[in-house]
Design a protein around this nucleic acid. Structure first.
Length: 588
DNA sequence: CCCCCCCC
């Protein structure tokens, strides 16, 4: 004997009545969003008297025709007026009671006319209020914790859709991005995002501008929060790899409250640690979780990205684990600056990106990576114990070692060879390094007024009214920053060469910041030019990029210094010995 | 409303 259908329930539901757990029959289902990994079905359902076709089911992996279900959680969603159907019944939670072979009764199509023909006085008030969706607290200051603990229904992340906005989720922050600013033709601002998870799935949630400020410190990784009234929209799969078709945005009406009694029902962030030795087999671009002991750290390095023209800060951290393999992990920006490698901390990175350089594998943090230092988890204690007892002294294989003989490791050249070898005809340009002496740094046109926006170094136009215009940012600023672009002649025994050097590297040669040089030039050009003269006859190792450029129909070799280092003569003598061995055929 | 994820 099949369960009794809740005859007439669909009519009452369509009239916005709350009907507790109605029992209906599924007459037909059609899978929609077939390209998605989360399934959604359009349903034709019947309560025995009426049938409706604008019903939708989410968060299940399939449903059989004619089965009888109990709608445990549902929501009547209003669609925008441009839609023909203006109400959709979303079934968010259900239980299959039994399967059937055929339709029960002969239900009538529940049209708008049928609904309208039943006046509201006819409907019986429902007192048994098992609500399908919890009411939002009227007073938003009222504790959500309090109201939610009394409420029975928390939506699952996997059931959230843009058609349904009366939900509360209880989710753990698994990841929080850094605060980031943007500036483009459509405007500028700042944002950050958190990744949220519950037992059903995950979703990204982003806050912009003042709301980013409001929530940035409040939302913390690993804590559990109630979220409601965020705006859902389709996820941009190009940038968001979370398993959800939607992502959400925090709005002014959003309510977020920390769940103070984390009952353990929301799963913890899980890590899938990859042994460092296994990174050898992974594809470039893969995102992995890794845990290792920081064996060594490099100094901070500043440089200008050639592709984005941005000033970059990085630091390399050498990680080692029980696979007796080490790998270089590159940290960026403030994370690079604040990293402290003293006492061999354990470093955990969730979502580190696998890279390749010179034939060796590397790791790098990306925006979505989450780093933890000495996390209080078992793996951390284990690896630290291993390192202290054994790992510290073990021989390790360095996975980041550069194996490729030539192309990545820039070749050593003398300046005459730079000309003779016909460098600079490849697409990327040709790199070389050379030990040379600064013969002349031109102070003329060496300094310029640049856009004050971090990462935009475009020369500004002085509007002579106290404002400076950046064409790239398409806006005016009351200030600017000084930048260097110095034309410099360097020489060695074989010849000399004009090269260009930008702020980051020029500062190393001049021993002054661009700002200091700019102010000196502005105040007193003699003191300014003295800064440039002081650099003459200093020796450095210059890493350069040579590229042939066409200028006024004329081809000329343009050389840019990409890195300047002080000469380590002991180390350099090794290079000289190598050259002698090659020239003489006698190995050292 | 971002969407860059980098360098040798």
């Amino acid at each position: 004997m099949p369960p009794q259908l809740s005859t007439g329930a669909l009519l009452r539901i369509m009239k916005d009545e709350k009907v507790p757990e109605p029992i209906v029959q599924i007459l037909q289902s059609k899978k929609i969003n077939c390209n998605s990994d989360k399934e959604r079905y359009r349903l034709l359902i019947s309560d025995g008297k009426y049938q409706i076709s604008h019903a939708m089911l989410t968060g299940v992996s399939g449903v059989e025709n004619f089965s009888i279900i109990k709608m445990k959680q549902y929501h009547l969603s209003e669609l925008s007026s441009s839609q023909k159907i203006n109400k959709i019944l979303l079934i968010i939670g259900m239980e299959v009671l039994c399967s059937m072979d055929e339709k029960i009764g002969n239900p009538e199509q529940l049209t708008d006319q049928v609904i309208a023909s039943h006046s509201s006085s006819e409907a019986k008030p429902v007192t048994n209020t098992v609500q399908s969706v919890p009411e939002q607290p009227r007073d938003l200051n009222q504790s959500l914790n309090q109201s939610l603990s009394e409420s029975r229904v928390i939506s699952q992340i996997s059931a959230l859709t843009p058609y349904h906005n009366k939900w509360v989720i209880k989710a753990r922050v698994s990841n929080k991005s850094q605060m980031r600013t943007w500036s483009n033709s459509r405007g500028e601002g700042k944002l950050f995002s958190v990744d949220l998870m519950d037992e059903s799935g995950e979703i990204r949630c982003t806050a912009f501008r003042d709301l980013a400020d409001k929530y940035f410190n409040y939302l913390q990784v690993d804590k559990v929060y109630y979220f409601s009234k965020c705006q859902l929209k389709p996820a941009n799969k190009q940038f968001n790899t979370l398993k959800n078709d939607y992502e959400m945005t925090i709005g002014n009406e959003t309510v977020i409250e920390e769940c103070l009694n984390d009952d353990g029902l929301v799963p913890q962030v899980k890590y899938s640690f990859v042994p460092i030795s296994s990174v050898a087999e992974l594809a470039v671009g893969a995102l992995i979780d890794v845990i290792g002991v920081c064996k060594e750290v490099s100094d901070i390095q500043n440089f200008t990205s050639r592709t984005t023209n941005r000033e970059m800060t990085k630091r390399d951290v050498i990680l080692v684990d029980q696979s007796k393999t080490s790998i270089t992990l590159t940290l960026w920006g403030s994370q690079a600056e604040s990293f402290d490698g003293v006492n061999n901390p354990v470093v955990l990175v969730r979502g580190a990106k696998v890279g390749e350089f010179g034939g060796g594998k590397t790791l790098s943090t990306v925006m979505s990576s989450q780093m933890k230092i000495n996390p209080d988890i078992q793996e951390c204690h284990k690896i630290k114990g291993w390192f202290d007892l054994e790992g510290k002294e073990s021989d390790v294989k360095n996975l980041s070692e550069r194996t490729g003989s030539g192309s990545f490791q820039s070749q050593w050249l003398y300046l005459k060879e730079v000309q003779d070898k016909g460098l600079g005809n490849s697409e990327r340009g040709d790199y070389f390094q050379t030990l040379a002496t600064v013969l002349l740094m031109r102070s003329e046109n060496a300094i310029y007024k640049a856009c004050p926006t971090p990462d935009c170094n475009k020369k500004v136009v002085d509007l002579e009214n106290g404002m400076y215009r950046c064409e790239k940012c398409n806006r005016e600023y009351p200030n600017f920053k000084y930048r260097l672009l110095v034309s410099m002649n360097i020489g060695d025994f074989s010849g000399n060469q004009w090269v260009s050097v930008f702020s980051g590297e020029a500062e190393k040669i001049l021993g002054k910041t661009s700002q200091e040089v700019g102010l000196a030039m502005e105040d007193n050009s003699e003191a300014g030019t003295a800064i440039f003269q002081n650099a003459n006859f200093k020796q450095f190792i210059f890493k350069c990029r040579a590229k042939v450029e066409t200028y006024n129909d004329e081809q000329r070799l343009k050389i840019v210094v990409v890195n300047v280092e002080n000469v380590d003569y002991e180390k350099h003598s090794g290079q000289l010995c190598k050259e002698i061995a090659e020239l003489t055929g006698i190995s050292a």
